[in-house]
Computed example of a mutant assay.
Amino acid sequence: MLGPRNYLLRQGRNRSRRAPAHPLLDCSIPRIVAVRVGITLGDPHGIGPEVVLKALAQFAPAADVELVWFADPLLVKGQAEALGLPVPSVPCVWPLPPVDWAFGRGTSTSGQAALDSLNLALDAWRSGQIDALVTPPLSKEHVPLPGFTGHTGYLAQAAGGEALMMLRGAELTVALATEHVALTDVRGALSVDLVVRKLRALNAALRQDYGVASPRLALLALNPHAGDGGRIGSDEQTWLAKALDTAVHEGLDVHGPFAADGFFAARGYRDVDATLALYHDQGLIPFKMLAFHDGVNCTAGLDLVRTSPDHGTAWDLAGLGRADAGSMLAALHTAVEVVKNRRAIR
């Protein structure tokens, strides 16, 4: 069920055995290998299953795309009926006991179901059964795993690499140097080495995953007004300047550091292919204001391809049938795009 569908076209079946084969007519035609996308459950008490149901109803995959949902089929059927949505034909994989669910606030049980689904999908990726993950939102506080801070860090640990949190929308692309870090800890987490590594990863992702031949990058400042010449912080004149110089010396086309408020107000993001923000809200506030309904959270920098809608569990909307599936639909399309782009350059 999860294996690729292989298409083999054969020519010249009725050709005489005595006739010599023309090399152009006898050439072998490579098989078409499916892009296999695994969808996780998310927290079943939130809007995750709803946006998946709605996105699947709109998603029209090409013949070379296969989907599988790592979800309890009884839960899928129950939520579809409760929301008045069609039950999708996508196969569900759930070799575990049925999931108890109720729309509303998350619990340790719903968090465990979200984690179980994620681990099933990771196992399928490790064994070569799927090529990409699309992950509906879960609730970090309800995942019963000490130290769990979200999909990005968990997947980086599971896939073995340094992940880059990257958000793509129709108008802009934003990546984060630090992700789910308390604001009081941000400066201590930042360094020349970290920023340079993130700029390298952003440059590579744009080239490899999205076909940008010569990426243009912007780097945001840490302090208000980029420090105002050192009067309200010297980071921009010291270690951030060194990080920028190092990246430029390596051949990256990166500019900055720009004061974040002026950069976004003047729509400076339109002059670059992507912007590196130094902390979560610096990048996510403008991104969600501009791209909330079609934005996609992409985990770059790993062998694993993972995308996600750019919103959370939305407990207050769960069960009402009003959740917007635009971001989830975009996440499905983006996952397929990235897999195909990576295959094209191998």
Results as ranks from 00 to 15, higher is better:
residue 4 P to D: 08
residue 4 P to K: 10
residue 5 R to E: 01
residue 5 R to Q: 14
residue 8 L to W: 12
residue 18 R to I: 13
residue 18 R to W: 12
residue 20 P to I: 15
residue 30 P to K: 08
residue 30 P to H: 09
residue 33 V to A: 13
residue 34 A to R: 00
residue 37 V to G: 07
residue 37 V to Q: 00
residue 37 V to M: 11
residue 39 I to S: 02
residue 40 T to G: 12
residue 49 P to Y: 04
residue 49 P to C: 01
residue 50 E to Y: 03
residue 61 P to R: 03
residue 70 F to D: 02
residue 70 F to L: 02
residue 71 A to C: 09
residue 74 L to C: 11
residue 75 L to T: 08
residue 78 G to S: 15
residue 80 A to E: 12
residue 83 L to C: 03
residue 85 L to T: 05
residue 86 P to Y: 13
residue 88 P to L: 12
residue 90 V to M: 03
residue 90 V to A: 02
residue 91 P to I: 01
residue 92 C to P: 00
residue 92 C to A: 02
residue 93 V to C: 14
residue 97 P to M: 10
residue 99 V to W: 07
residue 103 F to V: 00
residue 105 R to C: 07
residue 107 T to S: 15
residue 107 T to V: 15
residue 108 S to W: 10
residue 108 S to T: 13
residue 112 Q to I: 06
residue 113 A to K: 06
residue 114 A to G: 14
residue 116 D to G: 11
residue 119 N to W: 03
residue 120 L to W: 14
residue 121 A to H: 10
residue 127 S to G: 09
residue 127 S to T: 02
residue 127 S to H: 07
residue 131 D to F: 05
residue 132 A to Y: 09
residue 134 V to L: 07
residue 139 S to P: 04
residue 140 K to A: 05
residue 141 E to K: 12
residue 143 V to K: 12
residue 147 G to T: 08
residue 154 Y to A: 00
residue 155 L to T: 06
residue 156 A to V: 05
residue 157 Q to K: 03
residue 160 G to K: 13
residue 160 G to R: 11
residue 164 L to C: 09
residue 170 A to G: 12
residue 181 V to H: 02
residue 185 D to S: 14
residue 185 D to N: 09
residue 190 L to H: 10
residue 194 L to P: 05
residue 195 V to L: 05
residue 195 V to H: 01
residue 197 R to A: 15
residue 203 N to M: 06
residue 204 A to P: 03
residue 205 A to V: 04
residue 206 L to H: 14
residue 208 Q to S: 09
residue 209 D to G: 10
residue 218 A to F: 01
residue 219 L to E: 11
residue 222 L to G: 01
residue 224 P to R: 10
residue 226 A to L: 00
residue 226 A to P: 07
residue 227 G to Q: 08
residue 229 G to T: 07
residue 229 G to N: 06
residue 234 S to P: 06
residue 238 T to S: 11
residue 240 L to E: 03
residue 243 A to F: 07
residue 243 A to T: 09
residue 245 D to P: 00
residue 245 D to Q: 03
residue 246 T to K: 15
residue 247 A to V: 04
residue 249 H to R: 13
residue 252 L to G: 03
residue 253 D to T: 14
residue 253 D to I: 10
residue 260 A to R: 00
residue 266 A to Q: 11
residue 269 Y to L: 05
residue 273 D to S: 13
residue 276 L to T: 02
residue 277 A to Q: 04
residue 279 Y to K: 12
residue 279 Y to F: 05
residue 280 H to A: 05
residue 281 D to F: 04
residue 284 L to A: 01
residue 284 L to C: 13
residue 287 F to L: 13
residue 288 K to A: 11
residue 288 K to I: 11
residue 289 M to I: 05
residue 291 A to R: 03
residue 293 H to W: 04
residue 297 N to M: 13
residue 304 L to R: 11
residue 307 T to W: 08
residue 307 T to C: 14
residue 307 T to R: 11
residue 309 P to T: 15
residue 311 H to T: 10
residue 313 T to K: 13
residue 314 A to G: 15
residue 319 G to F: 04
residue 321 G to M: 12
residue 322 R to F: 06
residue 326 G to Y: 09
residue 328 M to K: 01
residue 331 A to P: 01
residue 331 A to I: 02
residue 332 L to N: 06
residue 335 A to E: 00
residue 340 K to I: 06
residue 344 A to F: 11
residue 345 I to R: 14
